[in-house]
Design a protein around this nucleic acid. Structure first.
Lengths: 133, 133
DNA sequence: ATAAAGGCTCCAGTTACTGGAAGGTCAAGA
DNA sequence: TCTTGACCTTCCAGTAACTGGAGCCTTTAT
């Protein structure tokens, strides 16, 4: 399989796949013409990477997960720990964004949004943190 | 005021303030010794920037907001539009993260997390998108 | 006089790609 | 056979928003 094939099958852009090779996540062999030649195993790894990335794991997480994936004797606890840490990061990010959302909605609602120049949003932004209301 | 003063008053690291000057968000004058000299107006802008950034506006958003902030005749509708667009981005991001969170929690819960090698998390990650359950 | 604290510039690195240029290869049609 | 177009290759640069560090100068306090 050439890069275009695994790209369409894994859902990853060819550019990204080349990048993953650059950073050592995969090591496809080469055909005599210099083209990358992927086998089913590499395709599977790419699929694994696509799915992990779509769940928000960082590249370094993926590297670790891939190592665990390949280690047939790994403990599931190791994987679970990584996943739980990531879960906590996601939860923190959600909380953070919710706070932003609440604060900003409050501001937007106070703004009449017409062609007059006074604007509670800008007024608030000009104030130091805290006291959104 | 030197950079250290406005750094502590605005809450922004000095490095960031220098960076903001580099990209043209602020233009403090210089003392004869080459030190940046900030007046109350610049400090206010930095405070504005700190607050806007903490609400997740991008630098380019901030540039636009700052321009509106300085334009005494701007329409509040222009500001509101920017803020609403950002609000929508935040909402999208929250939704996205929630989906990730649900999917990953489900996986984590299925994993027994002991020293045995079989792990539903890795098994799932090896599968193409969809069908998390 | 000296040492610490604070300032300056410039360079490089971070994350995870993405775009583009310049050029080689392959399969199909005229 | 030639050419066209789709793929493939590498390499360089850019994105967002800083952050760290080196090397050097200035100010302030002891």
């Amino acid at each position: 399989m050439n890069i275009g094939d695994v790209a369409s099958q894994s859902g990853l852009p060819a550019k990204t796949i080349r990048y993953y090779e650059d950073i050592g996540l995969i090591r496809p062999r080469r055909d005599s013409n210099g083209y990358r030649a992927f086998d089913a195993t590499e395709l599977h790894k790419l699929t694994f990477l696509a799915r992990s990335r779509s769940l928000g794991f960082t590249i370094e997480d993926c590297r670790a997960l891939l190592a665990l994936y390949e280690d047939r004797g790994r403990a599931s606890a190791d994987v679970k720990l990584l996943a739980e840490e990531h879960l906590a990061r996601i939860a923190r990010k959600i909380t953070e964004l919710k706070v932003m959302h609440v604060t900003l909605s409050r501001l937007v609602n106070k703004c009449h949004g017409d062609d007059r120049p006074d604007c509670p949003i800008l007024d608030d932004l000009g104030q130091p943190e805290e006291k959104p209301s």
